[in-house]
């Protein structure tokens, strides 16, 4: 979605300079939440204040929510249809693969080395084997990140 936003906001409408746009991306990625909605918030706020943010957010999520609800109702009524069941038998292993693949792509972009690989390994281990909530892992990463940087 980011390339689309850049094209529309910077090149076509000229509402933001390239630099302002990249500032919005940096902040949106640094904050928790859904990236596209964070972008809508920061861009909307920059352009028209609180009202701008509200309009941008609603514009960003309204159609997707309506569409996914229609599909949810549709697939729920068709759940016992054997043709639909066959399609989903193919989709499920594909979904697992699509979630597994970014693990390797992200390892490259996060500049993971053999010295730091224990961090994601430990996180995955704690979640899968010991049932630790990902929430605690994220909290621990924030706290440890701050402590290590302040002390070293």
């Amino acid at each position: 979605m980011l390339p689309l936003m850049e094209q529309e906001l910077v090149d076509r409408r000229g509402w933001l300079s390239r630099e302002e746009y990249l500032d919005c991306v940096a902040l949106s990625q640094a904050m928790p939440g859904v990236l596209a909605v964070n972008m809508a918030t920061s861009v909307g706020y920059r352009l028209k204040g609180l009202r701008g943010a509200a309009v941008a957010i609603v514009g960003n999520v309204l159609m997707p929510i309506v569409l996914i609800l229609l599909l949810a109702v549709f697939f729920h009524t068709l759940r016992d249809n054997e043709w639909v069941a066959r399609v989903f038998n193919g989709l499920r292993p594909a979904v697992v693969a699509l979630i597994a693949a970014p693990v390797f792509q992200l390892s490259r972009s996060a500049q993971l080395t053999w010295r730091t690989a224990w961090i994601p390994l430990l996180a995955a281990l704690l979640i899968c084997l010991f049932g630790v909530s990902p929430v605690w892992i994220v909290l621990a990463a924030i706290v440890l990140g701050i402590i290590v940087k302040k002390l070293l």
Binding site: I99, A110, A124, L144, G145
Partner: peptide, 15 residues
């Protein structure tokens, strides 16, 4: 901290 988080998130997705 964001760099640490990026690494941890890889583990979350793997899990």
């Amino acid at each position: 901290t964001l760099r640490v988080l990026r690494m941890v998130v890889i583990g979350l997705i793997a899990a």
